[in-house]
Design a protein around this nucleic acid. Structure first.
Lengths: 200, 200
DNA sequence: TGTACATCAGTGAACGCGCGTTCACTGATGTAC
DNA sequence: TGTACATCAGTGAACGCGCGTTCACTGATGTAC
């Protein structure tokens, strides 16, 4: 546990608290995407992490602080997934891999590990100024990671492509998630995929 | 007040309760679109309607009943607005009028009177089975009202166009509503408008 | 190496508050005669 | 027309519950000597 690097005032393993903190954030990130911002109660998140609610304020100043970290984590996780997929493809078709990865039944069926925009966009838009600012920062980081893979020669073209492609994908996943029949969901996803792949 | 048609057991004006009921639903519909499903508390909605919370259960069996009626009302209002706009245009360009009406700064700035999909889609997807079924019914009515105006000769083409156009528009409005700068919002809306108008 | 002490992540009871729901009551409206 | 009665939309206090937050306490870990 890298004991030699321990700060002299540390009593517990140096990483122990950090790891617990991160586990809480990761579990909250899942819960927030699955049940919405108002669906992630402090006690429930702590139970997910194998803890009791009392210890929460040893890790976070408030529930809002957890929520902003959880949304940040969600953007990071989804960003990692899309970057990983995009990097496997030749640069010219990377954006197509992002589209097929995003508009996938797996993504549509598992909001809890998916893009936070598809499960939280309207709630983020309604959040108070502080939270909105912080979440917008995370959204911008997410966008900046996607930009290199977007189609277009000039930066402004790629920025425009990001908005158009992600707008369409977000709306498509949201509609798909409302539909009861798996076959309807798959058709919606496939139609949007074909539409986008032919549009740039 | 059409007193002659009064049912013999009616003591109050025949329409009085219906009108109050509808006013509550309309106010709830605004509140639900502005603040989300969990942001529309019974007491707040009743206060909007100039009443106190105690009388609520003279009009609705439960809060869920109000919510389903409110979402239905929202789809109806937005449907009316789009149909009205579309009917003013020649049939071949009606869908373009729907796109420009939907992707408008006024719609982006006023969630409370806008399309419920842009403010509630993820919450609807997470709702319990009963509510989801009812809301899906309203969504299908909404879709059926839009279908005649969608581009495409065959019905299946128009259904596909509806999904693609509305997915893109929903995602666009949601992203626009997250952005702090009015100029950024306007650019996003304009880009999506141009994109859609050139795509069919 | 062994023992006394300090730290602090985690526990669980308790708090105040907002919310959905219930209920005894009110008072305006319309009916019966 | 006037008076006694019935109805029922609306009132406001009260309820139980879940939630965010606080706090005195615990006990495992690491330090000092």
């Amino acid at each position: 546990m890298a004991a030699g690097i321990l700060c002299s005032t540390m009593r517990y393993g140096a990483d122990h608290k950090k790891e617990t903190h991160h586990k809480i954030v990761r579990d909250a990130s899942r819960r927030v995407r699955a049940k919405g911002i108002s669906g992630a109660a402090v006690a429930a998140v702590m139970q997910d992490a194998g803890l009791t609610h009392g210890g929460f304020y040893k890790h976070f100043a408030s529930k809002d602080e957890l929520l902003t970290e959880a949304v940040g984590e969600a953007f990071r996780e989804m960003g990692d997934r899309l970057v990983l997929a995009a990097e496997q493809a030749p640069p010219s078709t990377a954006w197509k891999v992002i589209v097929t990865t995003y508009l996938d039944a797996e993504h549509s069926d598992h909001a809890e590990t998916g893009c936070p925009l598809t499960s939280l966009a309207p709630e983020i838009a309604r959040a108070d100024e502080r939270m909105k600012t912080s979440m917008l920062g995370e959204l911008m980081k997410y966008r900046n990671r996607m930009l290199p893979f977007m189609p277009g020669r000039r930066k402004s073209d790629r920025e425009r492509a990001f908005i158009l492609i992600f707008s369409t994908m977000i709306g498509t996943i949201e509609i798909a998630r409302m539909l009861p029949e798996p076959s309807m969901r798959r058709k919606v996803l496939a139609d949007a995929r074909d539409f986008l792949l032919q549009s740039f």
